[in-house]
Write a protein that binds this DNA or RNA. Structure first.
Lengths: 229, 229
DNA sequence: TAGACGTTTCCATTATCATCGAAATGTGGA
DNA sequence: TCCACATTTCGATGATAATGGAAACGTCTA
């Protein structure tokens, strides 16, 4: 069994508190400059650079140079999802401060999970798609039905294009706050992108949290027949 | 966010190769003497004892004294399931030797996931229970329907008793070889126990693998309408 | 009662690795 | 051209923790 090797090497990436902090912060799917990540993890830029280099070497993160900044992000959606899964075992975070509980409430409500929407909103949307027969669950796969093809096209998604991407097309991703599944994969990403384009959601600064706009509430009621407050 | 702390401490449990080997071996749900675990991990008894003491302290494993042996096992089903989940990210194990691939094939077919059945057999059984309307999926929960109540009672399970247990009654557990869900929780455990009592399955020595008997094949065809070879 | 065996405790060794100061590199702006 | 700034590289340090030898403990067997 050389599963051992894989398992422990994956785990050791996250076992260091500084790296965990960095990865958790990168879980918002955005690009972050090295300095910010150092600040988040509470370490000096040198140390952060050391960790980032290490993670870049194993392919966990990728770099993009822009001027004198270097922006890092998580390389693969699957890695991000693994960390999300770990979170669901870290248990419901014991709330310490009011500020934390407030932040937590926002995260539960709607947040980014790397490149797609997560939290209550995402779970409700996924439920709706299944209920209306646009998606069909098959294990961890989510198949788009005939009615789904029409629905998504009508929604402004180019499904053939999304299918072409070199990644899973449509799959379940475990939501660690809701303990249910939400749509991930290229479809989840495309859907999320489209909803942002329609200004249904707006990202918060420096956080994975996502705010729902008035248009969003209205749109979700009309399109998905769900009501979020 | 003190999620960080939790996440990294969970990961550090498995990040050490020796501990990973021990935990992976304990994933069969059986009790194992300390010496065996040392051998499996390729370390001296002292070192294994050190790791086991550490894991016992954090509540990951529990000890049972029998004569001069001390038998260890994973304390909580949820921990075992977390490790199983990590395995699904470790990727399909690159097969090195023929012996390994053979062992792997057996594991895929049927194995123990701590205290319940996993692998193809478990996934097929779960599918059958859903298809026949005995179980109903609700997020990660599995509800027993009215017809399910009758079915399980007829199968020899004491559901009220199982519900009393201080653990999740019936839930989905991600199968890392099949990438689908199978029944876990008290129901998964009870079901597995009953099938072993009926001699449908037999455990292999020193492995998580499980062999299906002739009775098992016949019984599964009759009761679950599935055919496994 | 003695000895074998499984296991743990104690202890010293060793290696690994996160960390940071100092300095180098590269980029942008004045 | 010079300086400020983001980042990395280098090098040294210190802490942590895995490891195994020696010995003790408890249990089983003869």
């Amino acid at each position: 069994m050389n599963l051992k090797r894989n398992v422990s090497s994956i785990a050791s990436l996250i076992s260091d508190p500084s790296r965990a902090a960095i990865l958790l912060h990168l879980l918002d799917g955005r690009c972050h400059p090295a300095g910010d990540l150092a600040a988040v993890a509470g370490i000096t830029p040198q140390t952060a650079s050391f960790h980032l280099a290490k993670m870049a070497e194993t392919g966990t993160v990728t770099v993009e140079k822009h001027g004198r900044h270097r922006y890092y992000r998580i390389a693969q959606a699957s890695d991000a999802e693994m960390i999300e899964q770990l979170l669901s075992f870290a248990g419901p975070a014991p709330v310490v401060s009011l500020r934390q509980s407030d932040q937590m409430k926002k995260l539960r409500h709607a947040r980014m999970c790397y490149d797609h929407l997560a939290g209550e909103a995402a779970v409700r949307i996924t439920e709706s798609l299944l209920r209306e027969g646009h998606l069909q669950k098959d294990g961890l796969q989510l198949h788009v039905t005939a009615s789904g093809e029409r629905f998504f096209a009508d929604f402004g998604l180019d499904l053939p294009q999304l299918r072409k991407k070199r990644r899973a097309f449509s799959r379940c991703c475990l939501d660690w706050t809701e303990r249910e599944h939400h749509v991930a994969g290229a479809l989840g990403q495309g859907l999320t992108e489209r909803m942002f384009a329609m200004d249904w959601f707006r990202r918060e600064e420096q956080s994975r949290a996502v705010r729902i706009t008035q248009e969003g509430k209205q749109g979700m009621a009309e399109r998905f027949r769900i009501r979020l407050d």
